[in-house]
């Protein structure tokens, strides 16, 4: 059944893909026998046949995932999306701390172990990736605004605690509210 549903969805996508290839795509002028539309047309036809094949001879009945597992998977997905959402506003260290701690608690770690793991992942990850390897990872939005205003041009990537410039009056309010909702909603 799961196979059939998936094959059905895929057939619809293929039909749409093929429809676009057969109607919408065309070059304004061309000298080659095959234009930009030919290859997608071929792919659409072959994929349609394969999809039909699976529709008529499916071999996977169900996904075989138990209910508690579904809950865990959906929770994981929500956490991942939350991590992506908070990645820039909170910066790498804070968002990674939250994500690592919450996920490991969800998967069965003790709270203080998880907190330690979160600190280690955020802190060491930052040290390793930003300080040592000089990769580009997000700073917390508040600090970033500080830097933008202090207008220092040094690209020296030593992100120590910023100087004692007072936070700008336009502190993004949404970061704080988002943090609280995340902590409340996912645990």
């Amino acid at each position: 059944m799961a196979d059939r549903i998936f094959a059905g969805v895929l057939l619809i996508v293929t039909l749409a893909y093929g429809a676009i290839a057969f109607t919408a795509i065309s070059a304004p002028f061309q000298y080659d026998p095959l234009g930009p539309e030919s290859w997608p047309r071929i792919l659409a036809v072959v994929a349609f046949l394969c999809g039909l094949g699976i529709l008529f001879r499916p071999d996977v009945q169900g996904l075989g995932v138990a209910k508690p597992t579904w809950v865990r998977l959906v929770a994981m997905l929500v956490l991942l999306l939350a991590y992506a959402e908070l990645y820039e506003p909170l910066g790498f260290i804070a968002s990674t701390f939250l994500f690592a701690a919450v996920v490991s608690v969800m998967l069965g770690a003790r709270v203080h172990h998880a907190a330690f793991f979160g600190v280690a992942a955020g802190g060491l990850g930052y040290l390793l990736c930003v300080v040592l390897l000089e990769l580009n990872l997000p700073e917390p939005a508040i600090l970033e605004m500080d830097w933008a205003q202090s207008d220092s041009v040094d690209d020296d990537a030593a992100p120590d605690a910023p100087a004692d410039t007072t936070p700008a009056d336009t502190t993004p309010a949404d970061t704080t509210t988002e943090t609280t909702t995340d902590e409340g909603g996912t645990d």
Partner: peptide, 12 residues
């Protein structure tokens, strides 16, 4: 290494 630490590490 328990899976509960490995899994978030992959995402990170």
């Amino acid at each position: 290494i328990p899976q509960r630490y490995l899994t978030p590490l992959i995402a990170i």
